[in-house]
Amino acid sequence: MQGGRQWITPHEWMTKPTQQTEWIEGQGLLIWMAEVFSALGMGMYLVSVVMDHWWGALVGWLIIVFLKLPFHFFYLGRPWRFWRAIPPFTKSWHSWIARGMFFTTVFSIFALIQLVTTFVLDHSLVAASAVGTLTVIDWIMRFLAGLFALLTGIYCGFMMSYCKSIPFWNTGLLPIVFVIMGIADGLALIMGVGLVTGGVDFHTLEIASQWALIGNAILIGSYLISASYQSTIGELSVRELLVGRVALSFWIGVIFLGIIIPFALSLISIFVLKTNIPEILIIAIISHTIGAFALKYCVLKVGIYRPVVTRAPVM
């Protein structure tokens, strides 16, 4: 928006803190979606691989390949040139987008191989003599795909935290917040998948999920506190988040739906009902997923530029 219109006033984008719009308004909503699905897909896949849940891993892979990537693709001003951003077609290894594209591509390939090998092994589709080799490959792929899933999830955070222009993002905590939130998302989603496919240990997941949520709450708290210390603009972002225009999304979306409700429901499941009722689980999962969307939305939305122009020292 800031490109064209100027009024001869002090009130526009350069002298006052202005919210970034490029990545959250209009077409920018696609970036929001892509980022959410990065986190969900990454979390889902990681948790599934650790839990050895094939269906979960498949869903994680699908989210990355068929949701995250297309959203990114359609956001681009020149989509058909997307290949230019993927190493080795680009030499710009220093760009977090290039890195991210690389991570995502590699993840997609490794995870696909893993999905196939695991499927083959699970359904004993190969001769017994090949099982040994295949198992080794499977494990290597699990490790590599898991690693790249983690990188795929974490690069989004680094991409944003690199921006010196936006102090609220320009902090080392952001990538960690995103990763932990992604893992919590994964834990929630895999329970949903488990409801359909079976083969998950709900109790363990509930406990893990609770820890992830607690970790998340602490992280978000410290992120906000440190962001508000770092600069006045960071403080402004935090204020926007807590009491400003984004407060509703933050308190209802991120805190209430994203953390409190899932946490409360899992407490109820464990200590009150002592069993898992699918309806409650589904509510918790939906609520948690909304929280995931809300978190990225809020963080993108309160990205406020540092004003370019500040008073000059007069001689």
Binding site: T18, L76, G77, R84, S95, K164, S165, V308
Partner: peptide
Amino acid sequence: KCIGCRYCVIACPYQNRTFIF
């Protein structure tokens, strides 16, 4: 070579890049 990812638009601390919609 530009793919229009607008990362630079965001990252420029001087807000001096314009995306041609």
